[in-house]
């Protein structure tokens, strides 16, 4: 086998067990050295491609799927309630029957995420900071110029089909969540919303819509103001 063919085939697959290659290497010291060096380099490349995997990635992948399933189940439950209510109507109980219709409102999805907040918070030692949040905010063309507080987690999540950045902070008024959404997806959001446990506000900033959610009665204004002052968008 000529030198060029040999080198080509070794480069194509340094781990080759092709008898022709092995025989050529056994017969020629130069080829043997080339095969040895290429295999050594390949081994180092294999080690190099094993880059560190973000901590808790498996946990987050399972969490995001659970959150989605939770939302689907909620919709199904509403459907059953709807059927029950319709039956009640049919048998003549017509006064003040509350028919719950399936909700596709983003704020409901945000509240569901906050309800499941505990699951998102990793066990221990997981640190995030402004630069990490900014790396993720870059996909919205946004950046935070100042600290907005003690950030615990920043993670992409899906509110129905809308990709959102969910940031969880520790504030003097307890844990709060910030959701950053593309402007077009968030235009239907009401200025304020809530349920029995949480309440939230939403506001627009240039190219995005932001939701801030905290416990019912918590003062959302300080965080809202910090966000408005700190978030900047690229041109």
């Amino acid at each position: 086998m000529d030198e060029l063919t040999f080198r080509r085939r070794v480069y194509e697959n340094p781990d080759t067990t092709d008898p022709e290659i092995l025989r050529a290497a056994a017969e020629d010291p130069a080829k043997r050295l080339f095969l040895k060096e290429t295999r050594q380099m390949n081994q180092r490349l294999k080690t190099a491609v094993n880059v560190d995997v973000p901590e808790n990635l498996a946990h987050r992948l399972i969490w995001q799927q659970s959150a989605q399933q939770y939302n689907q189940q909620r919709r199904k439950q509403r459907w059953y309630v709807g059927v029950a209510a319709s039956l009640a109507l049919l048998i003549g109980i017509t006064s003040s029957v509350w028919v719950m219709t399936p909700s596709d409102r983003l704020e409901d999805y945000a509240l569901a995420h906050v309800t499941h907040l505990e699951k998102e918070l990793p066990g221990s030692g997981y640190q995030t900071d402004l630069s990490l949040v900014n790396a993720k905010l870059a996909s919205f063309g946004a950046t935070l110029t100042d600290s907005i507080g003690d950030i615990e987690v920043a993670n992409f999540c899906h509110l129905q089909l809308t990709r959102s950045l969910h940031v969880i902070l520790n504030t003097p008024a307890g844990k709060m969540s910030v959701f950053v959404l593309p402007d077009d997806a968030g235009k239907e959001l009401p200025d304020s919303f809530g349920n029995d446990i949480y309440e939230g506000k939403s506001f627009g900033v240039q190219k995005a819509r932001i939701m801030v959610v905290g416990s019912k009665g918590a003062d959302l204004t300080p965080l809202t103001e910090k966000l408005k002052h700190s978030i900047q968008f690229s041109a």
Binding site: Q64, L132, K136
Partner: peptide, 14 residues
Amino acid sequence: EASIAEDIVQETFL
């Protein structure tokens, strides 16, 4: 890019 990689891995598993 690590953060983009993480993002598309999340989308992939979803």
